[in-house]
Each structure stands twice: as structure tokens, then as C-alpha cells.
Amino acid sequence: MMNNLFSIFDPSTNLFNIPLNWISTLIGLMFIPYSFWLIPNRHFILWNFISNKLHNEFKNLLGPKSFMGSTFIFISLFFFILFNNFLGLFPYIFTSTSHLTISLTLSLTLWLSFMFYGWINNTQHMFIHMIPQGTPSILMPFMVLIETISNIIRPGTLAVRLTANMIAGHLLLTLLSNTGNNMNNYLLIILILIQILLLILESAVAVIQAYVITVLSTLYSSEVN
């Protein structure tokens, strides 16, 4: 019996004191290596198509001053989050991206690297970016304070956005499934249909959240150049 609703998101499953839930974070790596030594199939062609589309889009977002190959960092981030979001939709597989341990680690690492690079190499540009063009002189101190606060909370907003969206859908699916024990047959059929629709919605959310996190990280990176 569950002590509370959020206990299903607690990574407590272990075998010989080894936390097995976090192993699901690495399951996505099993889908990658075979593409290097087998004949290209539809899965590999789709992988290349998505990678090329993301590469072109991120290259436009980063601008002409970006380093060669910098888009592959964000493409890897997209696929990593996408794999983990989708794996959480399967029964008995732990959703690692529903924990701040993973999402905050990713966002904080990226944000800190952008900030260190920007303030060390483009100090003047970072100061200029804190005051939007056309700001009256009397409002400049307030704009600097507002921009500083909005910049500091960026990694937190990225992490909480991903975690909250992953938890919300899974929690709703769990709550609805727990009500099916005391339902009649016709109500049970309706419940199953609702669950299927919610599962389709969660699949869309898994893709959208991976895309949103990656695009926002790309935009944050383009601001420091």
C-alpha cells in the first residue's frame, strides 16, 4: 500500500543495495551501437533525418559565431532526454527525468559552462546584455537586478519544467488506474480508453519537453557569444 501519491517516483527498488531504477537511464545506449555495423534500416534512416533537422535548426539558433560541431552537444542532449522520457512510459521502468537529480544536474552543468565561458571571454557583451537597448537611465539599476535574477533562475526553471511535466502525467495515469478496481465493466472500458488517450498525450509531452529543454539551452548558449 502506498504511503503517499509520490512514493511511486521514489527510486527505492534495489537488489543487494544496488539501486536498479537508475539503470534505466542507460538503456537508451542499447539502441545506438548497432547502427554502426549493420545495414542501415528505417530506424537508422529516421535517426539521421531527425539529427540533420536538429543540426540545421540549432545551427541557425547558435548563429555564425558558434564553434564547429557545437550543435552535436545539443542533439545528444535531445536524444538523451527523449529516451528517458519515453522509457518512463513502459511499465515498471523508472523515469529518471522525473527527478531533479537528473534534470537539475543537466541544466545546472550547461548553465554554469555558458556563464563561465561568457564572463571570461565576452565580459563586455555580458554586461551589455543585462541592459536592453533603449532602457531609460533611471530604470537601468532595476533592469540589471531583474536580468540578474532571471539569469540565475534559468537552470531551476529548466529542471522544474521537465520534472513537473513528467511527474504530472504519470501521476494522473496512476490515480486513474487505482480507481479501476471498483468499477463496472462498461466504466472500465471508458477508463481504458481514457488511459490510452492520456498515454498518447504523454508520448507527445515526452517529445515536446525534450525539444523545449534543448532549444532553450541552445538559446542560452547563443546569448554568451
Results as ranks from 00 to 15, higher is better:
Met1Val: 11
Met2Ile: 01
Phe6His: 10
Ser7Ala: 12
Ser7Thr: 10
Ser7Arg: 08
Ile8Ala: 04
Asp10Val: 03
Pro11Asp: 13
Leu15Gln: 14
Ile18His: 11
Pro19Asp: 08
Pro19Thr: 11
Leu20Tyr: 09
Trp22Leu: 14
Ile23Glu: 00
Ser24Thr: 12
Thr25Tyr: 14
Ile32Ser: 03
Pro33Gln: 06
Ser35Val: 00
Leu38Lys: 12
Pro40Phe: 04
Asn41Trp: 10
His43Val: 08
His43Gln: 13
Asn48Cys: 00
Phe49Glu: 09
Ser51Val: 10
Asn52Trp: 09
Lys53Ser: 05
Asn56Glu: 06
Asn56Gln: 10
Pro64Val: 05
Pro64Ile: 02
Lys65Leu: 14
Lys65Arg: 10
Phe67Ile: 01
Thr71Val: 14
Thr71Cys: 12
Phe72Pro: 01
Phe74His: 07
Phe74Trp: 09
Ile75Trp: 09
Leu77Ile: 14
Phe79Ile: 15
Phe79Lys: 05
Phe79Gln: 07
Phe80Met: 08
Phe83Cys: 15
Phe86His: 04
Leu87Gly: 01
Leu87Ala: 04
Gly88Pro: 12
Pro91Glu: 08
Tyr92Thr: 10
Phe94Ile: 05
Phe94Leu: 05
Leu100Ile: 08
Leu104Arg: 08
Leu104Gly: 08
Ser107Gln: 07
Trp111Asp: 05
Trp111Gly: 01
Met115Trp: 13
Tyr117Lys: 14
Trp119His: 10
Ile120Ser: 12
Ile120Ala: 03
Met126Cys: 06
Ile128Met: 09
Ile128Phe: 03
His129Pro: 02
His129Leu: 03
Ile131His: 02
Pro141Val: 09
Pro141Thr: 08
Phe142Gln: 14
Met143Glu: 15
Leu145Trp: 04
Glu147Trp: 06
Ile149Pro: 03
Arg154Lys: 15
Pro155Trp: 01
Thr157Cys: 06
Ala159Tyr: 00
Val160Trp: 06
Arg161Ala: 09
Thr163Val: 12
Ala164Pro: 05
Met166Val: 05
Leu171Pro: 02
Leu175Glu: 02
Asn178Trp: 01
Asn178Arg: 13
Asn178Cys: 00
Thr179Asp: 02
Thr179Met: 02
Asn181Gln: 10
Asn181Met: 05
Asn185Ala: 14
Asn185Arg: 12
Tyr186Arg: 12
Leu187Lys: 01
Ile189Asp: 14
Ile190His: 00
Leu191Gln: 07
Ile196Asn: 11
Ile196Ala: 09
Leu197Arg: 11
Leu198Ala: 03
Leu199Gly: 13
Leu199Glu: 14
Ile200Arg: 12
Leu201Val: 02
Leu201Ile: 04
Leu201Tyr: 10
Glu202Ser: 10
Glu202Gln: 15
Ser203His: 00
Ala206Ser: 14
Ala206Trp: 04
Val212Asp: 11
Ile213Thr: 13
Ile213Gly: 00
Ile213Glu: 04
Leu219Lys: 11
Glu223Gly: 11
Val224Cys: 04
Val224Ile: 12
Asn225Val: 08
